[in-house]
Write a protein that binds this DNA or RNA. Structure first.
Lengths: 352, 352
DNA sequence: GTCGACCGCTGAACCGGTTCAGTGTTTCGG
DNA sequence: CCGAAACACTGAACCGGTTCAGCGGTCGAC
């Protein structure tokens, strides 16, 4: 115990096996150049010695992999801690990577633009073999940046074909339309959507689907307000909406944290959920099931997306030509926070 | 744009400056061996060429740093996504690391024992310069493991002197005692604590303080039940406690997620909070402020702990002798979820 | 029987840094 | 004016892998 021995190198294995470094390298990497018998012997010695490749040395060789991929998360730091989405995503990505011994580098950047700097550094320091990107923005500079840096990348959630990168996309519009028609069927007419930041492409996609569906369903009083995904933001905006003259009878939130905040505001203002107000969250998580009433939510398998996007990135790194893939659309899970308006068979309540 | 040039090496700089590789290395690392004039010239050229050190090459040299530290998180994956503690910790650690260009490797392991394997791999692959460890267990094998692997480490939260590792510790007992006396002063006699997993040392420390303070305060009906930090676990146990014959009038949870779950159960069972039941959460987060009633909580600066522990690890890596440090104790933030029992001036209610 | 192909392996270069012994020059004390 | 020390810098080894040209031996085809 604890003799702190120098870790074994392939040179040690070579000496023990009485062959050259090169032969050991071939044997350990399963490449031709050694007989099956010698390979077995070398593998056995490597195992006995407890050898593990030095990623640093591998990375140094031309074309070598460093065995790590990166994820930059660029959202307000204070919301991150409570936003289930990212940890679930990270957890999913790692599940997939773990089997191949690839590590995940995580960077949380606070101000916009810093993320580009991180990609640049990772590329120039050869820190990662590739990156997973999320939250595509309007006029996003990242696809072009990673392309010019030669950094392999896969996008999670963008529409197909962002900057020529393969991506894992979802039809965000379908669940939005489903929610709108569901609320309309419950008798709601004034539906407000508390959206994510306007610069995100998925925010716009959802917004477009929302208004299109609202028109279809004949909801004249549908509109979107942009927020920042934080609980504070959700609280502030919900307060304003519920205090307005023609207050909405249903609120659709772009993340679960804001939805929970909205539920709190309703309680605080004495607005009964779901009798007087229906609430729908996007991205189901334990949070939605724990609060009372539990939140009707659009549920996606975020960890599954993480696994899938990690697999795609792996194929990109293998040099395969990777096509974009589509995930199943989110499903609406009706729970206690939505229902027909009580005492208003036809239309919305009018607030004082 | 995008010519994908080979990244410059110190050899390129040496050629441009008309000096040797060695001189460039000295100049770039601020070490003696070159004149101030030559150093300036070399630094200028490096800047012009957009040079950045290859960490892989640096790591290869004896005594070289790889410029990354690791964090293994070993808690049930499904609770992680919703547990604010870790993302806040990660966020804090990174804030500190970012300034020195050090990256964070994150590993989420699901089953116990896998974490040891990760440390072993990181050490043998020279993936990280050091690690931050959390959640010290009773009979924890990790301190001895990292010691024998020669992997520098700092512990977050253990009692001082775990396995000879420097640690950042807190007096977990003080806030627990404060909570107990606070609840006692409100008139509560039957107080139950929904604790974290029993194998964590901090769970035991809090438990001991809880029972000691309960005795001091004359609470005869105080007891602890162990849970797993998940919302489901919190729900299940709270249901059982509230359905018991002599149901507690106050519940103290070891994390915020379970506390939110408990609040939900109370609502579902028609138990009014805080009139009939007081709830206290450990680890304040946005969650505690968003639900209604908002949760009284013990608040710590988790991100701050992350920064501090990252600084400590940095000093360990510099070869300094690092002493353990103590953080301010958590503070009790009374909110809407705690209050005197209504209609029971002296003692607890008796349930049907 | 000879030639060529192929197999199994070796030796050396290479990746991009760090470090150290050594060398030529300057400085300075005596 | 000489010798030693200090300084600025070079050249080469080294870290732990990968890769490639080359080499001797075996085998099969003709």
């Amino acid at each position: 115990m604890g003799a702190l021995m120098r870790r074994p190198t392939i040179m040690d294995i070579a000496r023990a096996a009485g062959v050259s470094k090169g032969a050991v390298s071939y044997a350990l990497n399963g490449r031709p150049g050694v007989s099956e018998e010698t390979r077995e012997r070398i593998l056995g010695i490597a195992r006995d010695l407890g050898w593990a490749p030095s990623k640093a040395a591998r990375a140094l060789s031309p074309g070598g992999r460093v065995g790590a991929v990166g994820l930059v998360v660029d959202r307000p730091a204070r919301s991150l801690g409570v936003e289930p989405f990212f940890m679930q995503l990270v957890s999913g990505i790692e599940t997939e990577l773990a089997s191949s011994g690839v590590d995940l580098l995580l960077q949380v950047t606070d101000d916009a633009g810093a993320d580009l700097e991180v990609y640049r550094r990772w590329a120039s320091e050869r820190r990662v073999d590739g990156v997973v990107m999320v939250d595509l923005r309007v006029d996003d500079l990242r696809p072009e940046a990673v392309r010019s840096l030669g950094l392999p990348a896969v996008f999670l959630g963008g529409p197909d074909g962002v900057g020529g990168l393969p991506c894992l996309y979802t039809d965000d519009g379908a669940p939005v339309r489903e929610v709108v028609h569901y609320l309309a069927a419950l008798g709601h007419r004034r539906v407000a959507r508390i959206a994510g930041p306007e610069e995100f492409v998925h925010t716009r996609v959802r917004g477009a689907a929302f208004h299109e569906a609202a028109t279809e369903a004949g909801l004249t009083g549908a509109y979107s307000v942009h927020a920042d995904y934080t609980g504070e933001g959700g609280t502030r905006i919900t307060r304003r909406l519920l205090a307005s003259a023609h207050r909405p009878t249903a609120l659709v939130y772009d993340n679960d944290l804001m939805a929970v905040a909205g539920l709190g505001v309703a309680a605080e203002m004495g607005v009964d959920v779901p009798a007087q107000l229906s609430i729908v969250a996007w991205d189901d998580s334990a949070l939605c099931r724990l609060v009372r009433p539990s939140l009707t939510a659009i549920s996606r398998d975020v960890a599954g997306h993480g696994r899938q996007v990690a697999r795609m990135l792996g194929r990109v790194l293998d040099g395969d030509r990777v096509e974009s893939e589509e995930t199943p659309t989110g499903e609406l899970h009706p729970r206690g926070s939505t229902g027909p308006l009580v005492g208003h068979p036809e239309n919305a309540v009018t607030s004082g």
